[in-house]
Computed example of a mutant assay.
Amino acid sequence: MSQITVISGPERRRVWTDQQKRELVAAVSAPGANVAEIARRADLRPNQIYRWRGQLGQAAQSFAEVQVQPDPAPVSGSSIIVEFERAIVRIPASASPGLVSAVLRSIKP
Rank of each mutant, 00 (worst) to 15 (best):
G57N: 09
S78G: 14
A60H: 12
A27H: 00
R22Y: 07
V35R: 14
E11D: 12
I49E: 00
E37T: 14
F63N: 05
P31M: 09
V66S: 08
V35D: 10
I91W: 01
T5D: 13
A42P: 09
V6M: 14
V103C: 09
A93K: 13
E37M: 15
I88D: 08
V28M: 10
R41G: 07
G77E: 04
A39C: 13
A64I: 04
Q20D: 06
T5K: 11
L104D: 07
A26C: 05
R41V: 12
P46V: 04
P97V: 03
F63M: 10
P74C: 05
A93W: 06
V15A: 07
A30M: 15
L44W: 02
S2H: 05
V6S: 07
A26T: 04
A59Y: 00
A42V: 03
R105G: 11
R90E: 11
Y50R: 06
I38H: 11
E83D: 15
P46F: 04
R14F: 09
A102V: 08
I4M: 14
S29P: 00
D43G: 09
S2T: 13
I80G: 05
E11Q: 14
Y50N: 02
V66Y: 05
G54C: 02
A87N: 10
P92D: 05
P97T: 01
R53H: 00
Q58P: 04
S94T: 14
W16L: 09
G57D: 10
I81N: 13
I38C: 06
P74T: 05
S2V: 11
V68L: 15
Q61K: 07
V82H: 09
A36V: 14
Q48R: 00
V89P: 07
K108V: 15
V6P: 08
D43Q: 13
G77Q: 07
